[in-house]
């Protein structure tokens, strides 16, 4: 009997990463810009997304959404009010979405018909950071009622994001929200990340956000074309 060492050097999430890579290729080929929305429970992902979908549709864009939830289909019902095609992913207790859950919920959709596809992740500031879903843009949301130090408490997720959105800005005064401290904390864990301030309730900041999103999509298309 002898002891041996077997070198493996294999990523634990390789399977997810490979599938996410394929999804990203599929989304690029179809020209659909995919955004993955992550935040703690109750930050306002669904409210923000409902407004975003309505505005995009009003402006003649085709937008769809996948929404993850531990147990209910409530968020899908809310999002459907925008008129967008929506599918619920019930994760049955799993605290984040994985690439295979996205892949298995695309059946029957013609991706090429969509301009935007949004994925609302399960409300959780820890687990979604490890799972690539094939998205082009990862958006982390943070509400003014959660405390300015959230980015410092959950650096991996904030660091993995491409964009941060501060939600419920209509409540900022009531909770004495410290805007500059929040910006500093976000920048500390993810230098250079763009930050937007919005209220899904009053609509403040929403038009500028949607404009920006459309610009990001154009940049993305440009980048794909120049790669080809």
């Amino acid at each position: 009997m002898s002891t041996r060492i077997l070198d493996l050097h294999q990523g634990i999430l390789d399977k997810n990463d490979r599938l996410a890579y394929e999804l990203r290729r599929e989304f690029e080929a179809a020209g659909v810009y995919v955004a993955n929305l992550v935040s703690s429970p109750g930050t306002g992902k669904t409210a923000f997304l409902e407004r975003t979908l309505s505005m995009l549709i009003e402006q003649g864009c085709m937008a769809a959404a996948l929404v993850g939830d531990l147990a209910t289909e409530n968020d899908a019902r809310r999002l459907e009010r925008s008129g967008a095609p929506v599918r619920q992913i019930v994760t049955a207790g799993i605290c984040h979405l994985e690439a295979n859950m996205i892949a298995s919920h695309l059946d029957g959709w013609r991706l090429a018909d969509f301009d935007f596809l949004f994925i609302e992740n399960v409300g959780n500031l820890v687990c979604p950071s490890s799972y690539d879903l094939g998205e082009a843009l990862r958006v982390v949301l943070l509400s003014v009622t959660e405390g300015e130090d959230k980015p410092l408490k959950y650096p991996p997720l904030f660091n993995s994001a491409d964009l941060a959105v501060i939600t419920k800005i209509d409540l900022a005064e009531a909770v004495e929200f410290d805007c500059s401290a929040t910006y500093a904390n976000i920048q500390a864990v993810c230098p250079g990340i763009p930050v937007w301030e919005t209220s899904a309730k009053t609509g403040d900041g929403m038009a500028a956000w949607v404009e920006y999103l459309k610009r990001r999509k154009l940049d993305w298309q440009q980048a794909i074309r120049s790669r080809e």
């Binding site: 002891t3 041996r4 060492i5 077997l6 070198d7 493996l8 050097h9 294999q10 990523g11 634990i12 999430l13 490890s130 410092l152 650096p155 991996p156 660091n159 920048q187 500390a188 864990v189 993810c190 230098p191 250079g192 990340i193």
Partner: peptide, 28 residues
Amino acid sequence: VQQFRCDRCGRPTAQIIQGKELEIISLE
């Protein structure tokens, strides 16, 4: 993991060289 900046000049930097690993190296 709370302050992403250069040791020398103190400027923020988002270029990560290491830190996202989640990798099986070997079996004994």
